[in-house]
């Protein structure tokens, strides 16, 4: 709409939107600020905003209590591995559904999505037993497989919607040009759907990173990712706001940075390809 908007109106919009934005963002901002305070300053009344003695002692304390890098590494392996594996398995499936649709395609898609509605807690113990049997309990491999499976429906769904935007004629052209199925997917489909694939990967990486049911219940020490790292702070021992904040900041910082930098791609992905 190429229409002049009065500056007053724009100013009012700006003020309201920024206020709400900051309000929504405030808990995170406050956590980050608090992580740099001393424990005493963290609970100061009235609360201190910027004028306090900035310190890194909480980060040191958290690192001393639990080895952050190990949890971080587990998170990266688990989220990255499950997403990557999921995409590798989902791309062919989404290709089939998008380009060789049959009468059952829609049913299969909806069925896949409905497996996502299966309450995890309903199958917790069986999975637990299976994991013990297979020696997967508290291993990264086990979690990679489980998170891959719970995110698979979403990955297939998203890729399917992105693939459907690509004209079949182009794939047919590549077939005429002598491309095998592998070539067709690798050289034509994948590059064309790259933005969609990137959104899918990003979103599912974040979902896997933040997944807290299976990661809390299927790990103990070895394979525990950051969700478990932070859960160990749920039982308070004395003054601990600053340390909790430091630990929280450490747990969310990587994904926050990733999210901010890939915001455009992500917003596209967030809509699960269902809204244009």
């Amino acid at each position: 709409m190429a229409r002049a908007v009065t500056n007053t109106r724009k100013t009012v919009n700006t003020v309201i939107a920024w206020s709400i934005g900051l309000l929504i963002f405030f808990p995170i901002l406050w956590t980050i600020l608090t992580s740099f305070k001393t424990e005493a300053q963290a609970i100061n009344d009235p609360p201190l905003f910027l004028f306090f003695d900035w310190t890194l002692e909480n980060y040191a304390a958290v690192q001393e209590r639990s080895n952050y890098m190990r949890f971080l590494w587990n998170s990266i392996i688990i989220a990255g591995g499950s997403t990557l594996l999921g995409v590798i398995i989902a791309v062919p499936a989404a290709w089939s559904m998008a380009f060789v649709p049959s009468k059952r395609t829609k049913d299969i898609l909806l069925w896949m999505l409905s497996t996502k509605m299966l309450p995890a807690v309903g199958v917790l113990y069986p999975i637990y037993l299976i994991f013990i049997q297979l020696g997967l309990l508290d291993t990264r491999v086990g979690l990679v497989v489980v998170l891959m499976l719970i995110n698979m429906p979403i990955i297939v769904w998203m890729l399917y919607t992105y693939f459907r935007e690509i004209p079949v004629e182009i794939l047919e052209a590549s077939r005429m040009d002598g491309a095998s199925l592998r070539d067709e997917i690798l050289y034509v489909l994948a590059p064309m759907a790259l933005p969609g694939i990137a959104s899918t990967v990003l979103l599912n990486f974040i979902l896997a990173w933040n997944e807290a049911f299976w990661t809390l219940n299927l790990t103990a020490a070895k394979a525990a990712p950051l969700t478990a790292f932070i859960a160990s702070y749920s039982s308070p021992e004395g003054l601990f706001f600053a340390k909790l904040s430091a630990a929280s900041t450490m747990a969310i910082a990587p994904i926050l940075l990733l999210g901010w930098f890939s915001q455009k791609q992500l917003v596209r992905g967030l809509t699960f390809g269902a809204v244009k």
Binding site: P167, E169, I170, E172, A173, S174, V188, M192
Partner: peptide, 8 residues
């Protein structure tokens, strides 16, 4: 092809 079907 009608739509040319070039690889964009």
């Amino acid at each position: 092809f009608q739509s040319y079907a070039l690889y964009p």
